[in-house]
Each structure stands twice: as C-alpha cells, then as structure tokens.
Amino acid sequence: MRNWALRISVGLVLCGGAPVASAEICALPPGERAVVSSAVDGETLALDDGREVRLLGVQAPAPPPDWEGPDPWPFAAQAKQALAAQVEGATVELRFDTRRQDRHGHVLAHVFLDRDGKQVWVQEALVAKGLARVAALPDLGACLGHLLAVEARARTDRRGLWHSLTYQVRDAHDPKRLGHLRHTYQLVEGTVHGIGEGRKLVYVNFAEDWRSDFTVTITRKRLPVMEAAGLDLASLPGKRIRVRGWVEWWNGPMIAISHPEEIEVLDAPSSSSLDAG
C-alpha cells in the first residue's frame, strides 16, 4: 500500500498573540448577505427571502429518523434556542464552500454576523457551547480543523451535549452496541487491527473478523485528499483513533469517511468519555 498521511490542524489560530477574526480562521471568499427570519432547528436557518440555510461543518442534536420516544431529544431544543438567540432578525454573511446547495434545496454555508463590534462565526459559537458536533458533508470540508479544536475543548469541559450519555464517544470494539446505533451520527474510538483493500474501497478494521467488526471505509478516489493532508493509513494498525460519521450496517457497523479531519490519531484512550457499556 502507498503511504497515506495524517496531519490534522486543530490548534488555535493566533497572530502576534491576538485572536484572529473568525472570517480569517474560516478563510472562505466573501459571500452574500441575507436577513434571518427564524431558526428551523439547531442547524437550519430560514431567511426572509424564503430560502433555508443549512450550517456547514456541524451536526446539531436531533433524534434519529425512526425515534418515537415520549421525551424531548437531549439538547435538541437548547441547540435551536441558542441558534435563534444568535441570528433571528440579524443580517448575516453566507460564505460558501465548493457547492452552494444540497439536493433538498437548502443553501449550504458558513454563517457570520457582527455583534457588539465583534464578528461571530455561528458554527464556532454553537460548537464552543457544546450544542453541535463537528461534521462534514462528503465533498464539503472547509474550516473543519479549527472547529475540531473548539469541539475538543467543549468535550473536555463537558459543556452542553458532552454532559449527556446520549452523545458519549462510543467503543469501536463493541460492534453489537454500535449496531443498535444505525442511522445516527457518532464519534467512535478504538485500536486499529489492520487495513484491508478492495477495488473501490480501503477498509480500516478494528478486529480480525472484518465480517462482523466495526469498520471505517474510504473510497479510493478520496485517497489523494487524505494523502495531501498527511494521512498514513498504513501506519494506523496498533494505534488508537477516533472517527466520526453516520453509523450504517455493512458486514457489521460501518462509518464511511471522506475527509482527513474525520479521523483523529489519539495518544491515549479517552476513558472518561468512552461508552462504558
């Protein structure tokens, strides 16, 4: 196998000791201005021109599609309230990645606004409060590195959703429990057993029996992106990593990733945050 590298920039961005403006941290080209009428949920805005904006780079708390529980889903209401408090009635700037719209017609954007003389990056503010997790769409990965650093601090401080067992980091070596989490967005940690290769996919396996273990898949067409970011898949066996994404089922629980930021190499297990069963 070729040498695919991992280097994730998650440090705070500073310049001469002073914090850099949010729009410089998320250095996308200037976009368009719009007025927000309301927050639809924790990651979606309704604009006064009738369009809806989905916040890029984050996943707000929300129940699974088939959930029918009687109680409110943990932190879903708080995330919506926090978003509404920031943006309802405000004029915001929408900054775009390589694609501006999803198949449902939502505008896809990073959202900025000025408040009290300071620039607010809406995604960063939500992640910092523990009211959203970092998440990427397959071909849209701008600005994830800084958001990961913000999320790490919120998780360490157990802010917001990180204080709830619903959002705990899951154990990659418990495929049975992961199997019950299909169609949900999860963070999963474990020690890599080996790397497998297929015609279209590369597999990161977490046990010898790849037919039932937890597996991470990467399409071969995304390997150059991983390589450019420094991701060395061949070096992963024996290392503990954290991955994030939607859990599906294919010969056991599986997460498909497309961005290097969706894999983090860990120095040691995060026992305080792992699903203890």
Rank of each mutant, 00 (worst) to 15 (best):
V58Q: 10
Q81M: 10
P64Y: 10
L55V: 07
E43D: 15
L47D: 11
D66E: 15
A76W: 06
G57D: 05
V87A: 07
D66M: 03
E43H: 13
A79E: 07
D71S: 14
A82I: 04
A46G: 05
W73I: 01
R54N: 05
K80I: 00
G50C: 07
G69K: 00
V87I: 01
P72R: 10
A79D: 03
A85G: 12
P63K: 11
D49T: 04
W67L: 06
E52H: 15
F75T: 06
D66K: 10
L45P: 02
L55T: 04
D66R: 14
A82T: 04
L56M: 12
A62Q: 15
A79K: 01
T44K: 09
Q78C: 03
A60Q: 08
L55P: 03
E43L: 00
V58Y: 09
D66P: 02
D49Y: 02
P65G: 08
G57H: 06
K80V: 00
V53F: 02
P72E: 14
E52Q: 15
R54M: 08
D71N: 13
R54I: 08
G57K: 07
Q78R: 15
P74Y: 09
P63F: 11
V53M: 02
A82G: 00
D48N: 15
R51N: 14
R51Y: 09
L55S: 01
L56S: 06
G69V: 00
A82H: 12
D71V: 11
R54G: 02
P64W: 11
P65K: 14
L83M: 04
D48W: 03
E43K: 10
L45E: 06
E52N: 14
Q86W: 13
D66H: 13
Q59T: 11
L55Y: 07
D49I: 11
W67K: 02
T44R: 15
L55A: 04
V58N: 01
W73L: 04
L45T: 04
G50W: 02
L45D: 03
Q81I: 07
K80N: 09
A82E: 14
E52P: 01
A76G: 05
R51D: 13
D48T: 15
R51C: 05
T44V: 12
W73E: 05
P70R: 04
P65L: 13
T44S: 12
R54W: 09
G50R: 02
G69E: 06
A84D: 14
W73K: 03
Q81L: 12
G69L: 03
R51W: 08
W67Y: 15
A79N: 05
D49C: 08
G57I: 10
L47G: 12
F75L: 07
E68A: 14
A62P: 02
P70T: 05
A46W: 00
P74M: 06
E68V: 11
A84F: 00
R51E: 13
P61E: 10
